[in-house]
Design a protein around this nucleic acid. Structure first.
Lengths: 190, 190
DNA sequence: ACTGCCATGTAAAACGTTACATGATTCT
DNA sequence: AGAATCATGTAACGTTTTACATGGCAGT
């Protein structure tokens, strides 16, 4: 089982869906921390079906092409429940921006500042988006959700996003500060 | 050019190295945010050499097998300098723990608490490690490093790590709090 | 004697992205 | 008329991991 497989099971455990539906539903909020292309989704669905984790139900539609609605089997739900609390084996980190920071001493300071300002704006925008959705959830449910409801899942992931984006914004600001301080000192001395 | 290619160029720009050296040097601090297996490193080195970004110099050793020390060419350094400040195209996010949180409503609360406590410990340990290295750097250089020195690259990446780990720890604590509050309420009512 | 380090790669498999292919319907 | 949506996949490509292959030296 791949992680995408579990992501699809998690979606199907909430509601039966077609491959197309899943591609849509994967965008928000899962898309904030896990993404997949539709071609990948379809091949993964085939594997899940082959493994007996999901079953299709063909639904004919009058005006639209027929679709295959998938639902989670008992075996699929059991696999999902097991996976959810299984400790994570650390996966290889990938952060290109930090890699650039590692080599930033080679760069022109002005260009470096531009890079981190742009990144700061990007993360600030994301932060605002997450907080907006979070506010909607809290407006509906309050700040203490029932953890056995699917909406708690959304609430939890959005909190993760808020913490992560706040950290990114803070780091970008720190970088800009370091780079501008240095440039100012250069100017004063030169 | 792949991102690993730039990572290797960034290392070689600091000091010429063999493939084996690079595998070692990649561990810290780059390994905190980008990793690669040695086989991957060797194939990437071959591509960089073919592209004229690096040149090897064979060094015979009396007791050890001969090694090929690579250094960055002018073309390689130019490519690296360009890449460093080029805006990042967003890469697909991958965070399995957040995915689990999305499906946590299906889990046994006690097991869920155990998962997030374990993750909190892991991130706390990493945070301590980063802060320790950071303290060493600040002891040597102070808190305002010259941004044109390679050490500023290390300083910057470690700061990124500190911000990110602090955010992870905070989120894990928030999750544990949510899950334990709920369990307590259950107990009071039941 | 055995483990770990130094040193370099090849080959196969798994994973993920991009491009391609098809075709009707609904909205602007 | 054209763009977007609904709907499902195949094929090719590139990247990354895992396994394999080799072999001497140094430390316990």
């Amino acid at each position: 089982m791949t992680t995408l497989g579990y992501a699809l099971l998690a979606l199907l455990a909430r509601q039966e869906s077609s491959g197309y539906d899943l591609a849509q539903r994967l965008k928000r909020p899962i898309g904030f921390f896990w993404t997949a292309h539709s071609s990948h989704i379809y091949s993964e669905l085939a594997r899940l079906e082959e493994g007996g984790f999901i079953t299709p139900q063909v639904v004919a539609q009058p005006t639209r092409p027929a679709k295959r609605l998938f639902s989670v089997t008992e075996s699929g739900l059991a696999a999902l429940r097991t996976w959810v609390t299984t400790p994570i084996e650390p996966s290889p980190p990938r952060d290109e921006l930090v890699l650039k920071a590692y080599a930033i001493w080679l760069a022109d300071p002005a260009q470096a500042i531009a890079l981190f300002r742009q990144q700061e704006e990007l993360h600030t925008a994301r932060l605002a988006e997450y907080e907006h959705i979070l506010a909607r959830i809290e407006h509906e449910h309050g700040k203490q959700l029932d953890i056995t409801l699917p909406d708690f899942g959304n609430y939890a992931t959005l909190h993760a996003g808020v913490y992560a984006e706040q950290a990114s914004v803070a780091w970008c600001r720190w970088m800009v500060e370091q780079l501008t301080n240095h440039s100012r000192q250069e100017a004063e001395q030169g």
